[in-house]
Nucleic acid binder design. Structure first.
Lengths: 142, 142
DNA sequence: CTTGCTGCAAACAGTTTGCAGAACT
DNA sequence: AGTTCTGCAAACTGTTTGCAGCAAG
């Protein structure tokens, strides 16, 4: 929910002594209005077209903040760009990535999550987050 | 097994009409002698110290060939470098990555692999490979 | 008024590429 | 001989950073 996310960021900003600025508000709004895995460049273009005087360094800096605040997550695919996706509390989805058309299907699987916890426990490892990507051909491309 | 890997590459080279060169042999030897997830830079340094006249462009180009030949796999962690790991036929391991000390523990889990196949089937997706990384704190760092 | 934030441009890091000469078949 | 491969350096791409001015508290 969008308002909830804004609150997460406000709280984070408060706890870190960060200022609330026009740029951050705009970038957050636009980020929240996107879906899936947006690259910094793509987001920058959207921001630019709504508010041309925002620079891309700010977009980079702001997305890092979002990630730190826990409302976005960096993901690395194999296209040389850093992408960000929304973090939804308590939910975690993984990705089927088509290597031909680059489409991405998200899925969730409780059992896999559970197994991961078991594995982590066995190694004395404390999970912060995880990433599962399956590469191959999607239904259309095969 | 090292000889088997060399054969994989020889066969691949043959099928693609690639030449066998001193550089590729040396880089392959050194790559096979490494463990875990070596970055191109690290490998280049090893190569350089054994054979100073090999350039890093060649190392980059050669590692791509290895990946194409199926004996290495590119992995992206969050440190801005592309790393390569060995591909062992029929085996697939995943990673527990410590976000503090950057250590990596490998693990394997049959059940997760199975579940992945199910999920892919359900989406009409044909798996080529996959990547599961769990981030958090290792036993030493927590 | 103080300090953090921003835009700009320059700097950076990792990777790729053009090209002339060397090496393989 | 013909073609692929290599080393070098320059080019590129995505990202980060220094700094002077701007804006929030």
């Amino acid at each position: 929910m969008i308002l909830a996310k804004k609150k997460i960021f406000t709280d984070f900003a408060l706890s870190k002594g960060l200022r609330s600025t026009r740029q951050r508000d705009i970038i957050l709004d636009i980020f929240l209005s996107t879906h899936q895995h947006i690259s910094v460049e793509e987001l920058y273009l959207k921001v630019k077209s709504s508010t041309p005087d925002i620079g891309q360094a700010t977009v980079y800096r702001t997305l890092k903040l979002f990630a730190e605040a826990g409302l976005a997550r960096e993901i690395l695919l194999h296209d040389g760009q850093t992408r960000y996706e929304h973090v939804v509390a308590g939910e975690h989805h993984d990705h089927l990535v088509c290597t031909k058309c680059n489409s991405i299907v998200e899925f969730e699987n409780e059992t896999i999550e559970m197994l991961q916890n078991e594995i982590a426990d066995r190694h004395g490892f404390q999970i912060r987050n995880h990433k599962l990507e399956i590469y191959g051909l999607c239904a259309n491309c095969r």
